[in-house]
């Protein structure tokens, strides 16, 4: 195997792996995908070590003294949940395994996946967050009015959430600010409109912030024996949950002290 070819294979697999990791795949899947791709491209010897925010990857084309080898370390910064990308890379890896996709094809498709804007535009996500908030408010025992208000609150603060996610603000602060604002909006609405259950509105509206992907991945990593990664993700989930609780708590504290609620 040519040295340049080996390098290209390692680069492609590393890219696929780090995109998987960033979009919310569990460690086991990342390592298996990289392994499948390496074997399909004919790399005889490789080692992979993955944790939540990095991939260490080395490959060589044989055991001999003059065999080529190549090593890469990828930093995988701040993750965002995008299960659509996980699905796309999964399909790509299947195609490679079945021999339907060459190395060049894989490079092109990874470019495509990386550039993919997402299946839904901003307005649709806002509406989704709003509808989900309203529906959860009802499921947790809210009345029709509570559900409608939760939908309205969900719609308005989720816009802020999308904006804050584009900045480099920490997750704790992002979620605390969103929690603060959503509770503030709810308290305002509760004062304006009679017969509203404040708790049901807030519970519905905080649901879109719940760190579902981090939590599920944390548990899956721990179940698979990847304790370090599981612990990192579990802390991530706890930090987000704490952020929401702090944000909502500060608003409630302020207004109970003033005596408004």
């Amino acid at each position: 195997m040519e040295k340049t070819e080996l390098k290209r294979i390692v680069d492609v697999t590393a890219r696929a792996g780090s995109m998987l990791l960033r979009s919310g795949a569990e460690i086991m899947r990342v390592e298996n995908t990289i392994g499948h791709m390496m074997r399909s491209f004919g790399v005889p010897k490789y080692d992979i070590f993955t944790i939540t925010n990095g991939i260490f990857l080395s490959a060589s084309d044989g055991e001999e003294e003059d065999s080529n080898s190549y090593t890469r370390i990828c930093e995988v910064p701040r993750n965002s949940s995008d299960l659509g990308k996980v699905d796309m890379i999964n399909t790509l890896s299947r195609d490679i395994e079945e021999g339907k996709c060459t190395l060049e094809g894989a490079e092109a498709r990874l470019d495509e996946i990386e550039k993919a804007k997402g299946n839904y535009n901003g307005i649709i996500s806002l509406l989704a967050a709003s509808v989900a908030s309203g529906a959860f408010s009802f499921l947790f025992g809210g009345t029709a009015t509570d559900a409608l208000l939760a939908a309205a609150v969900g719609f308005s603060y989720y816009y802020l959430f999308i904006l804050l996610n584009k900045t480099k603000l920490s997750k704790l602060l992002t979620n605390a600010i969103c929690g603060f604002i959503l509770a503030l909006l709810t308290v305002g609405l509760v004062k304006l409109i009679p017969d509203v259950n404040m708790d049901k509105v807030i519970i519905g509206a905080i649901m879109p912030l719940i760190p579902g992907v981090s939590f599920v991945n944390a548990v899956r990593d721990i179940a698979a024996g990847d304790y370090i990664s599981g612990a990192i993700r579990m802390i991530d989930a706890i930090v987000i949950a704490a952020g929401i609780a702090v944000g909502v708590g500060v608003t409630l504290l302020l207004f109970t002290r003033i005596g408004v609620i």
Binding site: G24, A25, E26, R29, S81, L83, V86, D87, N90, F136, L139, F140, D199, I202, I203, I206, M207, I210, G212, V213, V216, N217, R220, A241, I244, A245, V246, V248, G249, V250, L252, L253, T256
Partner: peptide
Amino acid sequence: PVNVLLVPGMIPLAPGSAIYYTAYYFV
């Protein structure tokens, strides 16, 4: 991938209300 089905399916079970009441009674 399993996560594509698992994460949304688990969402209704998220303990959102328990987290809220903890924060509420705390403050």
